[in-house]
Write a protein that binds this DNA or RNA. Structure first.
Length: 708
DNA sequence: GATAGGGTTGTTTTT
DNA sequence: CAACCCTATC
């Protein structure tokens, strides 16, 4: 459905029909209600705690839900119940931590009802913000064709801003572009001044001259974003928040959205909390359910503050508070270890998960000689588990940091075990993929500074200084792509500048390829075309160019799912972690069984497996060496460990290598405090040795013969 | 003055 | 492995 902007009022009437294809409610849920109401056995499917919740959906409510307590199930049933009672899908807003989680919940509602609830406002804060901003860009004065930058783009733009701000006049060391961006983000997400953020997180930059200069840099950064039509992740929240203060829009939202559910509330930050507060205030019945677990708050580095969940009842009069405490995921032994661990956190609400599963075997603490043997142990153990009848997709390896996965990947590859990595640089952030995407960005938004710089850097004869000059010249002209193809552009707008002739010639040739692009073209076809004319560049630049060209084919295949460039780009920016490059290890190509997962703990949030391995449990790695003392940061680190352990249903392997190979030689690291502080009763100790790297035979388990 | 290429560095976690 | 700095070359 397209929207023709005739008058402002008309624009607003279309609000709930625009942008999402499957947006209009195609079903009369009241009819389904009659047919389905008796089929869903709420009383049988939910426990008493959960039933209480779905029977009290009016007014503000806080649900404290421990790990594995059927939190998602409760939300899904709550949504189903609302729909059955006649609430339209488009009257429900469901805020989740990832867009994948939103899709899965909708799928489960669909399974329950037999029909897909089309038109729900479901997604992350950022994705929902984008949906509103695409409709109301005009209202708050941002370009309607704005492009969302990912984090590395934002940092790159920050670097350009720093370069323009004459930082060299300050003698002291100035924050890097990454740190500068991070300070700005904290300031926005936590509602603090720049000075406060510096005192809080970066006290080494506490210097009036630096702070003044930073403010200047941020002004340039902001101006650049506005000129180029770029939004960073923080802008999505800032502008959404701003939009909610616009009377007309606010009234419309208040009228149309009747129920709000927010998952993972412990990981919201100040501005997200404020957004929710504003939306509830607009809602006459204040129907909101906020779900979370302060013990699982692991995103403080993004400004998240678990106190939002604790303060929620204080902010909302007559807020009901419910707890769901029964754990349906893990055996009691795993819960005992997790409970023991989290009890060491002082700044936490005391609560214990209550087991419902039958007893099994205690978690293992496995000590190995070094990180090579750790990888070897994991690979061997996976093979044993497979021979025991476990499936690959029932096993996960959860790491504190992306680089912890490298050696494990190598061993799994060597043993032909198929796996998928969910860590590190995402597929769509790899250099050659971004090279292609830069061309797509310019179709939507021909003044996108970052994309131009990326393209300039691909061209022989144009370096950083020519790039700045050319961009400055094209910023103020219409239709830069066309202009860059003509000699006159260079002779009129860049008169007297020293730009190598070779560079100009190459640039003209390159841009000539882009002349016939149109935003009406299908993204897939565009990608094929662009890949073709980038092939020689990729060949020249990368040794593994063949692999990279294959990636671009994958990109084109993925793009088939989208019919417009704008939607394709939005989806890429907002679904970073959902769309993975599958690093399959194929014994034979035909076998497409779901693989084993190697993931960071952060990305494993909300998921579960029968067997979980947690490697690198030694001081300096987990907890990370960046965390000192026993303050809030250290407690968050412990919560990360807690989240990892509570992913496991049946078997949990905690692994500590005694030595780790660093840049030069081995370093000895002590056992992680998260292990040593535990009551030894809650785990079984095992030591695993290999007689040599070549001969990967286990000599034996010294104290846990029943390691399987 | 500007670019290209070599060598060195150092890496938490993500919307 | 990619983002930096330094230096040789155009």
């Amino acid at each position: 459905m397209s929207i023709k902007k005739k008058a402002e009022d008309e624009e607003e009437i279309h609000v709930f029909e625009f942008y999402e294809v499957d947006h209009e409610p195609s079903l009369e849920f009241k009819d389904i209600a009659r047919a389905k109401y008796n089929e869903i056995d709420f009383e049988n499917d939910l426990n008493e705690e959960q039933l209480t919740i779905i029977n009290n959906l009016k007014g503000p409510m806080l649900v404290i839900a421990g790990a594995g307590s059927g939190k998602t199930r409760t939300i899904v049933y709550a949504v189903a119940k609302l729909l059955l009672s006649g609430v339209k899908p488009s009257e429900i807003m469901l805020v989740t931590f990832t867009n994948k989680a939103a899709n899965e919940m909708i799928k489960r509602v669909e399974t329950l009802l037999g029909e897909r609830p089309k038109g729900m406002w479901a997604g992350t804060f950022h994705a929902l913000a984008n949906r509103f901003l695409r409709i109301y860009s005009k209202t708050i004065g941002i370009k309607p064709n704005y492009v969302i930058m990912d984090e590395s783009d934002s940092v790159a733009l920050m670097k350009l801003s720093i370069d323009l701000a004459n930082v060299s006049e300050i003698e002291e060391r100035f924050p890097s572009s990454k740190v500068a961006k991070s300070i700005l983000s904290y300031s926005i997400n936590c509602n603090k001044t720049i000075k406060d953020v510096i005192l809080w997180k970066y006290s080494n930059f506490d210097n009036p001259k630096i702070i003044l200069k930073l403010e200047e840099v941020y002004k340039i950064y902001k101006k650049k974003k506005a000129e180029a039509g770029l939004l960073d992740f923080d802008d999505l929240l800032v502008f959404w928040n701003q939009l909610l203060s616009e009377k007309k829009v606010a009234q419309l939202i208040a009228k149309n959205i009747k129920y709000i559910l927010v998952d993972e509330y412990q990981d919201t930050n100040y501005i997200q909390d404020e957004i929710i507060y504003k939306i509830i205030s607009l809602n006459p019945e204040r129907n909101i359910i906020v779900v979370g677990d302060d013990a699982q708050s692991i995103y403080a580095f993004r400004g998240a503050n678990y106190e939002n969940i604790l303060n929620f009842p204080k902010k909302h009069a007559d807020c009901k508070i419910y707890y769901i405490t029964y754990n349906y995921r893990s055996i009691p032994e795993i819960l005992e270890l997790a409970n023991d661990s989290i009890d060491h956190n002082m700044r936490q609400f005391k609560k214990n998960m209550r087991p419902t599963k039958p007893s099994g075997i205690k978690p293992f603490h496995v000590q190995v000689a070094d990180d090579d043997e750790q990888a070897l142990f994991i690979a061997n153990q996976v093979l044993k588990l497979l021979s025991e009848g476990y499936e690959l997709n029932e096993i996960a390896i959860l790491c504190r940091a992306a680089f912890h996965t490298f050696k494990i990947e190598m061993q799994l590859r060597a043993k032909n075990i198929p796996f998928e990595v969910r860590a590190g640089v995402a597929f769509f952030e790899r250099a050659h993929v971004k090279d292609v995407l830069a061309h797509l960005h310019l179709i939507e938004n021909p003044h996108d500074e970052l994309s131009w710089h990326r393209i300039f850097s691909m061209i022989q004869g144009i370096g950083s200084s020519s790039a700045v000059k050319i961009f400055t010249a094209l910023l103020n002209i219409e239709n830069p792509i066309e202009q860059l193809c003509s000699k006159e552009f260079y002779s009129t707008h860049l008169k007297g500048e020293r730009i190598p002739q070779k560079g100009i010639k190459n640039l003209m040739n390159h841009v000539a390829n882009m002349r016939h692009f149109s935003s009406e073209d299908r993204p897939e076809e565009l990608i094929v075309t662009i890949s073709k004319f980038l092939e020689s560049y990729i060949q020249a630049r990368y040794e593994n160019w063949q692999d990279r060209m294959d990636d671009l084919k994958q990109l084109a295949i993925y793009a088939q799912n989208y019919d417009s460039v704008k939607r394709f780009l939005d989806s890429l920016a907002l679904n970073r972690s959902t769309i993975e490059a599958k690093r399959w290890l194929l014994g034979d190509q035909s076998e497409e069984k779901a693989p084993l997962i190697i993931s960071t703990i952060h990305r494993a949030k909300g998921l579960e497996w029968r067997v979980v391995f947690i490697p690198m449990l030694c001081e300096g790695f987990f907890p990370s060496s960046r965390v000192y003392g026993d303050g809030e940061a250290f407690e968050e680190e412990r919560r990360v460990f807690y989240v990892a352990a509570t992913r496991a249903k049946e078997k949990l392997y905690l692994i500590t290598p005694a030595m780790i190979r660093g840049f030069r030689g081995y370093d000895i690291h002590g056992t992680s405090q998260f292990i040593s502080e535990l009551n030894p009763r809650v785990y079984k100790k095992a030591t695993v040795r290999f007689d040599s790297k070549e001969n990967e035979k286990n000599i034996g388990f010294t104290s846990a013969a029943d390691l399987l």
